[in-house]
Design a protein around this nucleic acid. Structure first.
Lengths: 215, 215, 215, 215
DNA sequence: TATGAATGAGACTTCATTCAT
DNA sequence: AATGAATGAAGTCTCATTCAT
């Protein structure tokens, strides 16, 4: 009873433990997928007993959903979208692509985990999968709005096509980088991707001159 | 009905049993991924006891590598590439895209399983992952040759860029369809992809008019 | 009967459970050897589920090493070596033999298990085997010191010979009793052994009359 | 139909296969004991399929009994007992010890396997254990006769004591060598053993001068 | 806020053995 | 004289989870 602060030993308890568990779980889930992530492995990596994990999370499914959620927040924080509307539409398009590319290099867990979950088709869908798909759907809607703003008058079906193609390219380039590592220059690839998508959208817009379409 | 006793069960038949096991394993692995594929589940689906699976395959890893191998062969058989050189280069390019799209709709197991494995990063890599990456590398090399033939004089770095972008798009579009199902018209998306890739390659080639490149 | 509820089962008690497991394992290992000791059999005999055994021991090898360790301690506790230096050297020698004989009758597990393990030559040596050999080497060294004290001036090579012969006799007599049961009077045999070893050592010592050595 | 010998391909069939199986089984049983000797391991080491082993042997127990039997014969063939009665009784005694020592160095399988089996106490005794104990009992009886011939008039109880001690020493010294390898000079140890046993027997005989027995 | 201990279910794999050829 | 294939039982061990403290 010498100092002023009353019994505050071991510092930050609950919150810090929760973070340690999530940190461990992200790593292991990234390595081994949903089924491959065992509570015992998470426990071993974070140093807390398995029963403590169940104090913080209802069950394994809950833990992995939390992992997805937190990795989404981390990714969102890493996503530094260009602020004001400067430059030509194409330039802004390319800048968005650059921001996404950078975020995927710096915070790849969200997409990696999400795609892993998305590829599986098990009868009882993990909650984490639903979280990923829902978050992704939000992003998709927002992107649709962007395109609609950029190219008003574009047919809704064409908007969906462009957005689907844009997202597919992003996923695919990310995969490429996951597979081949630094051999893939994600920034350069995303710039190319942004240009191609932009042009494709432009050409679909009413009044566009289809000069390249066919020779 | 003298000579046709209807498939007397239990009559040892190695080849057929192996197929039955692989059939069951492809289905389950497609649903649940590598770890999620339990020998018991495969045994239940194919009707052979678990111990019989070990007569045909050394262990689970060996089984799943065989699954990848066979699903690759199945996919290759489903891939009906356009034969002779008819039409313009762009038309041929688009035709290849159409063939790939169709093969991925009809025989999606190879890419689905492969991408699942490719996304994982476990310390001791499953053999199936290595098989997938190796097969994919072969395809990549062949595609590089195609591009080089089509556009001689293209800078090697540009060839790699184009090929990476082409594969990324294929993977990404496939993913999109896996996630959203029939809402994605793979044929249409692949035609768009083929056109964009072709144009991009064309524009990189020496002597092309770089009118869109930078403002 | 208010304060004595009779050993409420299921009340987690690590120490006691560990003992129960070891008790069961010693019995079964004594009957059936290393490979013959199945976790299921231990589980059945101690009443704890197999998975609980793995809470207390890393794996089967770890369990059997612990069995060896504990049976050594049990044997050591049963080994009531004569305390002070009373009587002639021969008498003291014989008294040690008697103590060892008694300990082997009362606590035979250590040597039985140890010899079982020692006889095997498997490529990856069980840890229990190493524990046995190491403990035995300590005993051997201590016995060497005893001989050196008793018969100073004895050639080191002769000391080793005497000690090897003494241990061999102990092992062999124990084996004889394991095989023929009570038909072997271990006490009498160890007395004979003690006398013979003592005489042999005496005769090797410098200054002894080598009348029998060689004709 | 060109040569004289009619279809004799692959040479020596049944007999040779049986030998190959036994050769493999001796090795594996020496390494891993009774339970540790799996049919699959024997099959792998001898190159014949497991089902072929069952053509030659009724079951695993039968195989291991045959292993014991054959290793006994091998040992007996290696045991080159001194022929005629030359030299003093002690010299003959020592010569027998030397022959036994040599046989155990050259053909150790029989005793190694036998002692492994003898130490176990499983409810349903393996047939190999019975074979070993029976063969050993024959040897014991023959040794009793030798002692009775050598020292007529020796009390039957003393004869049994001497024989038990002699066998125990042999077993123990063999064990020592199994454990410590070439560090144990089995020939020298057996000579010492022979001398000590001989003297002990001599001293028990009626009319002997008990000068060392008790102080 | 945690955790030591326990537990049934189920994972992968090997076992000894049989059977039809 | 042999063997490819099959099989139920059993092996070791891990799983997700719970519970009393």
């Amino acid at each position: 009873m010498t100092g002023t602060r009353p019994t505050r030993r071991k510092r930050a308890n609950g919150v810090e433990s929760r973070q340690r568990i999530l940190d461990a779980a992200v790593q292991i889930a990234s390595e081994r997928g949903y089924e491959g992530t065992s509570i015992a492995a998470v426990s071993a990596r974070c140093g807390l007993p398995a029963s403590s994990i169940y104090w913080h999370f209802k069950d394994k499914d809950d833990l992995l959903a939390a992992v997805i959620e937190r990795s989404f927040e981390t990714w969102l924080a890493a996503l530094d979208l260009p602020g004001e509307e400067t430059g030509t539409p194409l330039q802004r398009f390319v800048a968005v692509g650059a921001a996404v590319a950078a975020s995927l290099v710096n915070a790849p867990d969200f997409l990696r985990l999400g795609l892993m979950l998305a590829l599986e088709r098990r009868p009882e869908e993990p909650r984490g999968r639903a979280v990923f798909l829902q978050v992704r759907e939000v992003a998709r809607q927002r992107f649709i709005e962007v395109i609609e703003t950029l190219l008003p008058g574009l047919d809704p079906a064409d908007v969906r096509t462009v957005v689907t193609y844009a997202l597919a390219g992003a996923d695919g380039l990310f995969l490429q980088r996951e597979i081949h590592g630094d051999a893939v220059d994600l920034a350069a690839m995303f710039e190319l991707h942004a240009r191609l998508v932009y042009e494709a959208a432009l050409r679909m817009a009413p009044g566009a001159s289809h000069d390249h379409a066919k020779p």
